[in-house]
Design a binder for these strands. Structure first.
Lengths: 222, 222
DNA sequence: GTCTATAAAGTGATAGAC
DNA sequence: GTCTATCACTTTATAGAC
């Protein structure tokens, strides 16, 4: 790490630029020349600060995970609290009232994250890693996704008492799929729905649809 | 059809090898040397048969679309027939009996396609194009996906009379998401469910879950 | 910490012999 | 149709001056 502010500025500029270029081109096609140029930083400094291309790539993921954590952290903390205040004596209606809203809030957060134009880069980076995991996938999954799916699974289990943990987790996978599709198959979805982009209006339609789907999948009436 | 079978063999060997290498490395990172080596074909012949790297890439997509069409074609034809035998006078129960089985058959087919280890390469190629569409995306969407989503949308509309076409299409998107997640987020799903692979047993569990979800989303009881 | 300059290896494409 | 050989260019990484 570099304590001096000069090096820190350089590091951060490189990470920001690299996030965009790696997302756009993928690890291999991305060029360190491009990244250095986009950052306005001399190319040789990449070697100095990150050792090599892979070191820079990992730094991009660590930075991304940290930023996403800051976004969904508050929601996750609320859910943790709700889960800790657990009470198996609750009747079905009370459980729904307690656990469903935070579950929907979490999926809303993920959806907003996936659909937002702002986080385009992150989505691209993560999806590439899902397809062909490198060491960077561990940075993402262990540092972030593990907690999200754990929270979702526990919420689903509370909402569906009969389910085993693996049943609940399978249901979580399909719930996540409904959110994921708007990022992973974005080009196809836009074509299918005849949308130009996923803006606020479109996001609202999607959110409503997903809420209904989740309620239906959890066998909860309106 | 080719008078000289020699060139045809070369073409096909190159397409098979290129499918694997493009899927593994992506368009940019894939090397024509690698492809030629994997095919056991001289590198210069790529230029002769496909003009350049992009020509080979497009040939890979055309070949892929053709093969997938052959797989889902029969199911699609059955659905077309069912839709043509349309009758608005049918009551709800009869519509469910007529339209739900083919819908589930189609999603089952897509799921099997997405989960199969065999079609690993296709999934990778398509997902990459979804994220950063090139002209190859059109080959895939227009040649294949358009028909699938059209069939699904029409089935959903018949099963949910009140829906507008865009409502039905949005529902189709979320249905496809539940299938897609097992390919697009495969690494994460395996981790989440503590599976080593998606084999026949796992596929069966997924299929059951998705059937239940779809029935719930369509507001159809068991 | 930052720069210039360059080494070493890889890339896609193609000319020309057979 | 297929091959060898090679060109023109780009890539990452790094040595060495400041």
């Amino acid at each position: 790490m570099n304590a001096s502010p000069r090096g820190k500025v350089t590091r951060e500029a490189l990470i920001v630029a690299a996030t965009g270029v790696f997302a756009r081109d993928g690890f291999h096609a991305a060029s360190l020349r491009d990244i250095a140029l986009a950052a306005g930083i001399n190319q040789a400094l990449i070697g100095y600060h990150f050792r090599n291309k892979e070191g820079l790539y990992l730094a991009v993921f660590e930075n991304m995970v940290e930023q996403i954590r800051q976004r969904i952290g508050p929601i996750a903390d609320v859910i943790d609290a709700a889960l800790k205040a657990a009470d198996s004596a609750l009747d079905r209606e009370a459980r729904i009232e307690l656990y469903l809203p935070p579950l929907l809030r979490l999926t809303d957060g993920l959806l907003a994250l996936m659909a937002s134009y702002e986080s385009d880069n992150w989505g691209q980076l993560i999806l590439r890693e899902q397809q062909a995991p490198t060491v960077a996938f561990g940075v993402f999954y262990d540092g972030l996704m593990q907690r999200v799916v754990s929270l979702l699974s526990r919420l689903v289990q509370r909402l569906r008492e009969g389910d085993t943990e693996s049943e609940a987790r399978l249901l979580v996978a399909t719930i996540l799929g409904q959110v994921l599709v708007f990022r992973a198959a974005r080009a196809g979805v836009l074509q299918l729905l005849q949308w130009q982009r996923i803006g606020a209006d479109e996001l609202s339609l999607i959110r409503t649809r997903i809420h209904r789907n989740i309620r239906a999948m959890l066998e909860i009436g309106d």
